[in-house]
Design a protein around this nucleic acid. Structure first.
Lengths: 194, 194
DNA sequence: AGCGTCATGTCAGTCACTGACATCATGGGT
DNA sequence: ACCCATGATGTCAGTGACTGACATGACGCT
């Protein structure tokens, strides 16, 4: 492939839209083949037919390209929140609503993505941050419904812990049960523990 | 102060030991006065009388200088762990042992440090990672005591959530109760919620 | 005095990330 | 058909975190 061919591809790609989508796909593919640290942002951008600068216009940093989709979680979580109820009733409702995020078809993709994340501490940090932001948003929503702030924080943290544990089990090797079933079981286990 | 004076100070500081300690103090001071982002590693190193390269020999990265002390938490946590018992009994014992980490004299220092952390997302990420590592270590210790892995993970996450919430309350403006008292109350609150 | 060890200094280099400015396709108004 | 505002992109120079390779100085031991 000549340099002029590459130039032509760039020009074609430049205005065809969906740059963010192409960047996300290119990033995951490259992370799988060369590892997260072994992949530069410049390489991801080149694979998507854009420049490095454009990458950073779509994503705040290199890690964010793997977590962009998760930004929608907060909306889905809060959408399932009833107007009133006891703390753990509200959290249970939220978890039921969140289950729709993980249909069985999505499992292979989630497994691939998670394999990249567990291989890099910086990515785990970002995942923890996203979960924490979820807990903070949930805490605030519970507080707005008249729940004591400390109770709200504890209920939200417990809910997110159940969610995270259920997700980990859902993508574990050999696991085939659907997400909602797993999550319900884990919530019951937590109840039994305390 | 002349350039040769600075050189002399460098030489004097070079072999007086405690470089890591000086770096930690210099870092916190500079973070408080200029902010985390507004402080470069080179500035921290200069304030401690060493070079930037030496900073990175003591701390894996810029953030770690604020979290180095927390690495001892894991040992303190696990040291208080009984040889056997029900999951939440074990976690309760661990929390009681952890209380010794936060005597009242330490509160002002903790408040200063936490003020820096809440002002920067990257530092919050690192704090979440440290808490997560704590939960992982606790999960493993519980599993080694014959507890089912999922139960162990849930109990550990719950324990760390209580610890974190208690710490946040202990640091809060106007709070004067000692850490153990706060933590016990929060643990009881979590029990009441579920 | 000679020697090994360990903490440190020096230097060059990579890469993530940013600000400033230029460029180009698109859509709407004239 | 022309023009212009807009938004997405390219280009370029720069900063700062972090690393590898190698040199040097202080200390303890013999």
């Amino acid at each position: 492939m000549s340099a002029s061919d590459i130039t032509m591809m760039r020009i074609m790609a430049r205005w065809q839209g969906g740059a963010a989508e192409r960047l996300k796909e290119a990033a995951l593919t490259l992370f799988q083949s060369h590892g997260y640290d072994g992949t530069t942002v410049a390489e991801i951008a080149a694979a998507a037919g854009v420049t490095e600068r454009t990458f950073f216009r779509h994503f705040a940093d290199k890690r964010e390209v793997l977590f962009f989709d998760q930004n929608a979680f907060e909306g889905v979580f809060l959408a399932a929140l009833p107007a009133s109820g006891a703390p753990m009733e509200l959290v249970t409702a939220v978890l039921a609503g969140a289950a729709s995020l993980f249909p069985d078809e999505r499992r292979p993709w989630s497994r691939a993505r998670q394999a990249v994340i567990v291989g890099n501490v910086a990515l785990q940090e970002r995942e923890l941050l996203k979960m924490s932001l979820l807990a903070v948003a949930l805490t605030r929503a519970l507080t707005e419904r008249g729940i004591d702030p400390v109770d709200a924080a504890l209920a939200a943290e417990a809910g997110v812990a159940v969610f995270r544990t259920a997700f980990a089990a859902w993508i574990a090797d050999g696991e085939e049960r659907p997400f909602p079933e797993i999550q319900t079981e884990i919530l019951n286990r937590l109840r039994a523990l305390l």
